[in-house]
Computed example of a mutant assay.
Amino acid sequence: MARFTFHDEMTAPKAALPAMAQAKQAFGFVPNLVRGMANSPGLAEGYLTLSGLYANSSLSLQEQQIVLLTVSRYNGCDYCVAAHSMGADMAKVAEDVIQAVRDDQPIADPRLEALRVFAAKMVDKRGWLDEADIRAFLDAGYEMQQVGEVILAVGMKTLSNYFNHIAQTPLDEAMQAHAWSKNDSAA
């Protein structure tokens, strides 16, 4: 099966270099995700643009990572579950919350649990949520703005999760401690 090349700054298409530089500035290195996406410069740029927009959402850093981790876990993306486990740890999400999301188990905090459930339902129902799904999310203290921001996160993660499924993106060394496999979970 044909595989993507994981480029560096010397082998990447010229049009991908700005995205690679942006990733290096943001993370201190160019993650394998972006190195692989460099094969399609528009994909790399689109992903990083959506990431920047989502980072500026009204959700807290912890809430953002819970959504990204939930969507990645639901989609069975080994790479992104590891990446967002690391991101959640860096955002000071409690270890038991990270583990609950990784294991597809309820979070003890009712507000965060409503967020996790809402994000999973958004993916599961492909956006066809019913009034009860939305009402449960709003009743937990969220607003319609956050409904849209969860949709933004799902779109962003769809790009990276699907890319990683096809590319079989290897984990970066920085993420090794957070490795996860859909084959080892109750997916």
Rank of each mutant, 00 (worst) to 15 (best):
K24C: 03
V71Y: 09
A21C: 08
D124T: 15
A82C: 05
A44T: 03
H7C: 07
Y54T: 04
Q168S: 15
E63I: 00
A114N: 02
Q176Y: 13
A120D: 08
T5W: 11
V30S: 01
D172K: 12
M86T: 10
A2S: 14
P170T: 11
M144R: 15
A108D: 09
Q64P: 06
R102A: 01
K121C: 05
L43Y: 13
Q176K: 15
P18A: 04
I66D: 04
A88Q: 08
A120G: 03
E113K: 09
V101H: 05
L69W: 01
A140P: 06
L59K: 00
F137T: 08
M20D: 06
Y162C: 12
S57Y: 01
K121T: 08
S40H: 15
G42P: 03
I66H: 02
A136I: 10
P110E: 00
I134H: 05
L68M: 14
K182D: 10
N39L: 10
N75R: 02
P13V: 09
P41H: 00
A23L: 02
V34G: 10
D130W: 13
A174N: 12
Y79L: 08
D78M: 01
F27D: 06
N161K: 06
H84S: 03
D89H: 12
G46E: 04
A12F: 00
A140E: 04
P18S: 00
A55Q: 05
T5G: 15
A136Y: 02
L48Q: 05
E9D: 13
S72F: 03
A132Q: 10
D8R: 01
L43P: 05
Y79I: 07
A167N: 12
V71D: 09
T5K: 14
V93M: 07
M37A: 03
D172N: 14
Q64K: 07
N75H: 10
F137C: 03
P110F: 07
M144H: 15
A15N: 09
K125V: 00
A19L: 06
F6I: 08
D103H: 05
E143Y: 12
Q105T: 11
A179L: 01
A186I: 13
S72W: 00
E95F: 14
L115P: 06
T49C: 07
T49W: 10
A21F: 10
L112F: 03
A82Y: 02
G28H: 04
A136T: 14
A55D: 13
A186N: 15
E95W: 14
S58M: 05
T5Y: 14
N164Y: 03
M122K: 09
D103W: 08
R111Y: 02
N164C: 07
S60N: 10
F118W: 06
A23D: 06
D133V: 01
A120T: 06
H7D: 01
T49S: 13
H7Y: 09
T169E: 12
F6A: 00
D139G: 11
V71F: 05
A15C: 13
H165D: 01
A94S: 05
E9N: 08
K24Q: 10
G46C: 00
A83Q: 03
K14W: 11
M1P: 13
M122C: 02
M10H: 14
L33K: 06
E149T: 00
L48G: 02
L61C: 13
Y47W: 11
